[in-house]
Design a protein around this nucleic acid. Structure first.
Lengths: 124, 124
DNA sequence: GCACTATTTTACCAATAAGTTAAATAACGG
DNA sequence: CCGTTATTTAACTTATTGGTAAAATAGTGC
């Protein structure tokens, strides 16, 4: 299973149950059964979700007697944020002409000729 | 297929090929064949990836003669950022005692009794 | 209309994911 | 030790995903 870490993380986030688990964990560390409580789903299912989240680096687990408390793990969140950051300037183009201009400029450089055949249908 | 939009978006991002396509599109709008070029993959495969990205709200497609130029669509990126933002305070805990303190406080409130049985093994 | 280019659709396959139930493990507490 | 609680593993089912090759569709240009 040579899936790259970032894919594993996004994949883990692509499930409402898992995101709900993360939301709960944002309130603080807690046990598996407590995490499972709000869901109409068997324990093993939750256990699997937690394994996915752990493998994705989004949570970490420790041991306390027969409980396995889970907590959020910042690293993966940071990674996602860093990835997203490369696109931030893109959606934060606040009616900024310059931004659009630069974007088009880069587009022109990146995709040069190749379209020197025809441009648009003339009129009809 | 009633998958919620955010799941669809994260799911779309959970693939290196699709992320590479987005990276290319960050340089500017371009055609399907040009997007396909760097990949050792058939056209239909790329076409499917684009459909996934479009359905996820990450790109939009227009028509220009027989080309179907693709471009980034800010909306879905924004949504992901907004989701992530709820966790930002979590990983930006800059050695801030207060942050940890608040987090534990919330944890205590969120997970009250329930663990009134035993606490820790005494000493051995 | 015909040949050509760009792209999508269809039909198929193998691998993975998400859930299930039943059984196994781990740790406590008397 | 035994019974109980918490959690995971195993085995299985079904649906989805990512890829393929071959055929269909859409638009251009002579």
């Amino acid at each position: 299973m040579p899936t790259d870490p970032l894919s594993a993380t996004f994949s883990a986030l692509a499930d409402p149950t898992r995101r709900a688990i993360l939301a709960r964990l944002a309130l603080g560390e807690t046990s598996v059964s407590e995490l499972a409580e709000p869901f109409a789903m068997s324990m093993p299912a939750i256990s699997k979700h937690l394994k996915v989240l752990e493998h994705a680096g989004l949570i970490a687990r420790s041991r306390d007697a027969q409980w396995r408390p889970c907590r959020l793990e910042p690293a993966a969140f940071k990674t996602v944020d860093a990835w997203l950051d490369r696109y931030r300037r893109f959606w934060e183009a606040r009616f900024d002409r310059l931004d659009a201009y630069l974007q088009n400029l880069q587009a022109a450089e990146a995709a040069p000729q190749k379209r020197t055949r025809t441009k648009k249908k003339p009129s009809k």
